[in-house]
Amino acid sequence: MTPKSEAELAAAIAAATGPLHITGGGTRPIGNPVDGASLSTASLNGITLYEPGALTLVAQAGTPVADIETALARENQRLAFEPMDHRALLDTTGTPTIGGIVAANVSGPRRVAVGACRDHMLGVRFVDGRGTVIKNGGRVMKNVTGYDLVKLMCGSYGTLGVMSEVSLKVLPRPDTSATISVAIEDDTRAVAAMSAALGSPFEVSGAAHDPASGQTHLRIEGFTGSVAYRSEKLANLLAPFGATTVTENSDTLWTAIRDVTAFAGQDGDVWRLSLKSSDAPAVVAGLSKMGALYDWGGGLIWVLTKAGHNLRAEMGDTAGHATLIRASADTRAALPVFHPENPTVTALSTGLRAKFDPRGILNAGAMG
């Protein structure tokens, strides 16, 4: 089923007699395997409102992210949360859509500076498991009373409702950028360097470390003169950690970090770890792995393992989360994709799903 309007989407869900497998552009098959009739939002396509002066954009859920980025670029604006493109890493085709980005709360390296996708959400329209159209939020940032369904839907992987339209805050594109790269072999020192940079007054918008190359990368963006000044100061600050180099307009590097292309085409499973940055080096050192990549100053670590390896079991009682991003269907069926929740959160999640999807037909089991 590929409804072409919100009304058709609502009718399809209301008429469903069994489970539905919700998809957008088909580029991000993350989650436990889902059985059910396919329901795609890909034909809910188009930017319905764009007000550059108000930094606001409204688009239907199936709108390609590339179309949105093109429209924003014409006004020298962008999606500041830098959504990842999973196609290379997951070896998928198709077209990333804005609804899929929101449903998975996809956020890139700039999250350390501007927040996640959900922090840029203004409003949402979606259809719940009964086929009822629900609207929440608006087109401006403001405090409201009641349930914040906008943020609740962001990261719900289609298990609470099927989005038909999203409203987003956009931001100006900076004049230029620069990357300070520091030669650091030791992960602990690399995390210390990233922490020093992020704690500095130089407004770092990206902090990543690649153990394979022994390079730690810090990004600065803004007006040309400001970037030059801050780059020099940050390079001086980081000089005690290792030899530094400064590269201007290094978009290709940050796209590779964002999309984890280092693991694309390699055999094995890919895990995404969320950890306290100060704990990350010790945790990563104790894992059976074939590769690792640090982002978000060490708060996010991508890990490549042998196929079928239960990396989560190796973490033990470490405070953090491990999500299985890439693996075979058999492995995803055998290992929970998402980190087990504590009983209190499980009870809340179960209650929310029962409220929004009482028949249990929307991506049932995708999140456990």
Rank of each mutant, 00 (worst) to 15 (best):
A103T: 04
D259T: 08
R353C: 10
A14K: 10
R74G: 15
A366S: 13
V283Y: 04
V337P: 04
V106H: 07
R78Q: 14
A73N: 10
M141A: 13
K4T: 14
A178Q: 06
A178E: 09
L9C: 00
A212F: 10
A347H: 12
S278Q: 15
S107W: 06
D85E: 09
D91E: 14
P96R: 03
L234R: 03
S167M: 03
T244L: 00
M141F: 12
P83Q: 02
N45E: 13
V260K: 10
V337W: 04
A193H: 04
P201A: 09
E248S: 15
D357H: 07
L171C: 11
P33W: 09
T216E: 06
V303T: 05
L273V: 02
V34W: 02
V65F: 02
A329N: 14
S200W: 00
M153A: 10
L348K: 10
M163C: 04
T48F: 06
L57W: 04
S5Q: 07
P83D: 01
H309G: 04
L20E: 00
V114D: 06
T247W: 11
T245K: 12
L362E: 00
V112N: 09
G36H: 09
T2E: 15
E221S: 09
S164P: 07
P109H: 05
V124P: 03
P29R: 02
S328E: 10
E203T: 13
A116G: 13
L287E: 06
I101E: 09
L152G: 02
G199E: 08
H309W: 09
T95C: 11
